[in-house]
Design a protein around this nucleic acid. Structure first.
Length: 297
RNA sequence: GCUAGGGUGGUGGAGUGGUCUAACACACGAGACUGUAAAUCUCGCGCCGCAAGGCUUCGGGGGUUCAAAUCCCUCCCCUAGCA
C-alpha cells in the first residue's frame, strides 16, 4: 500500500518546518492540507512557507475570487499524492484543516454530489425548522440522525437536503487507501497566546495590509470565500475606516486562538494521531524514530 | 467650588419600584461538523451543588417601602461646561 505521512495539528506549531526536515530525511515531498493556502495571492495571512527550491503541493490552486471545497481538494490532491508515490517519494500531508485531511485519508462519501445552485436559491431565506421539515420529507432517516446543533444550522441543512434530493447513494470507502502514519503537533495552551501574538505582529509587518489592498484592487471582494480567512476578514472595517489597526490586530489574535481550540476539538477525536508537544526538548528525535520505523515496515 | 450628566457582570451596553443574576452583543469555556471547514452551528457562562435547590450582586454607607439596580439622604469617583 502507498505510504502517506501526515503531519497535523493546530496552527503555529511548526508543521511545515517539521515536514521539511522529514522530507529531507525520508526523501519526501510536502503536500499542504490547508483550506486557505489553496488561494493564490493570499500569502502573508495564510502563512505560506516558501522555502527556496522546494515545491509544496496544494498551494495556489485557485484564484481568490473563486469558490473552493473539499471535493476539489480531494480530487486534486489524490492525484498529487499518487504522482509523488509513483516517483518513489514519500508524500507528507501537512496541515491544520481536519476535514481536508479526512477527505484524503478516509474519503468523504457525499463529496461527489455537487452543489445544486437552483435548489439553494429556492431554499434561501428559509428558517431552520422549515429546512428541517423539507429534509425530513426527502430523507427522514437523515433528518432523524442529525444532532441538535446541525438541525438548526442552515448551511448543513441545505447541504443535507441537496444530498437527499440528488438521490445519489452515498458510498463510503471501507478500506484505507493509504498506509498512513499520523503525527500531531501541539503546544501547551499557555504558550499559544504569546506565539500567536508574535506571529500576527510579524504578518502585519510583512505587509498584510498591502496584500489586501492588492487583492481588492484585483477585484476580490469581502464576500468572497477567500476573504473569510483570518488575517483578512478582520480588516474589512479598517478599510471602511471604522476600525483602528490596534483593534483589528486584537481581533485577529483572538480569532487565531479560538481557531486553535476548534482545531484541537477536531483532532483530539482522531485516535490514530500520535501527539508530540513541540515545547518539549527532544520530541523531534523520538518522532523521527517513529517515522523511520513505520517507513521501513 | 458651582452646574449638568454619569458610576450596572470579564467588556460594551439595556433596565429607572415587583416577573432581575439583570436584555442584547462581545470576550471566555465546552462541544458538533461527510462538498463554504480559517466556514457554519449548539450549549454554558455570579457563587455552592450531579440535581432539586440554596446563597449573593447593580460605586460605598444609611433610609423609605410589603418590595429598590430603580425613590430619598450622604460620601467617594468619572465626564462636560462654568468659575
Amino acid at each position: 500500500m502507498q505510504k502517506l505521512l501526515i503531519v497535523c495539528g493546530p496552527t503555529g506549531t511548526g508543521k511545515t518546518n517539521l515536514a521539511l526536515t522529514l522530507a529531507k530525511k525520508f526523501n519526501g515531498e510536502i503536500v499542504s492540507a490547508d483550506s486557505r493556502q489553496v488561494y493564490k495571492e493570499l500569502n502573508i495571512g495564510t502563512g505560506k512557507d516558501l522555502p527556496q527550491g522546494i515545491k509544496i503541493w496544494g498551494y495556489d490552486l485557485v484564484d481568490p475570487k473563486q469558490k473552493f471545497s473539499v471535493s476539489e481538494y480531494e480530487n486534486i490532491i489524490n492525484n498529487v499524492i499518487e504522482d509523488i508515490s509513483n516517483r518513489n517519494k514519500l508524500p507528507i500531508l501537512t496541515g491544520g484543516t481536519g476535514l481536508y485531511i479526512k477527505s484524503i485519508v478516509d474519503g468523504i462519501g457525499t463529496a461527489s454530489i455537487a452543489p445544486n445552485l437552483n435548489l439553494r436559491a429556492t431554499l434561501e431565506g428559509k428558517t431552520p425548522p422549515e429546512l428541517f421539515d423539507i429534509l425530513a420529507q426527502f430523507d427522514s432517516l437523515k433528518a432523524a440522525s442529525m444532532n441538535q446543533s446541525d438541525r438548526v444550522n442552515p448551511r448543513r441543512l441545505v447541504r443535507a437536503i441537496e444530498v437527499a434530493e440528488s438521490g445519489v447513494k452515498i458510498t463510503q470507502r471501507n478500506k484505507p487507501k493509504y498506509d498512513s502514519l499520523f503525527i500531531g503537533l501541539t503546544r501547551p495552551q499557555e504558550l499559544v497566546k504569546n506565539q500567536i501574538e508574535k506571529r500576527v505582529q510579524e504578518r502585519f509587518k510583512q505587509g498584510i495590509v498591502e496584500e489586501i489592498k492588492n487583492l481588492l484592487k484585483d477585484g476580490v471582494t469581502w464576500d468572497d470565500q477567500s476573504m473569510s480567512s483570518m488575517g483578512y476578514k478582520e480588516w474589512k472595517d479598517y478599510f471602511a475606516d471604522t476600525k483602528e489597526v490596534k483593534e483589528v490586530l486584537k481581533e485577529w489574535v483572538q480569532n487565531e486562538i479560538a481557531y486553535v481550540k476548534r482545531q484541537m476539538v477536531w483532532f483530539k477525536k482522531d485516535k490514530r494521531i500520535f501527539w508530540f508537544d513541540v515545547s518539549g526538548l527532544n520530541y523531534q528525535e523520538k518522532l523521527e524514530k517513529m517515522v523511520k520505523k513505520w517507513y521501513a515496515s
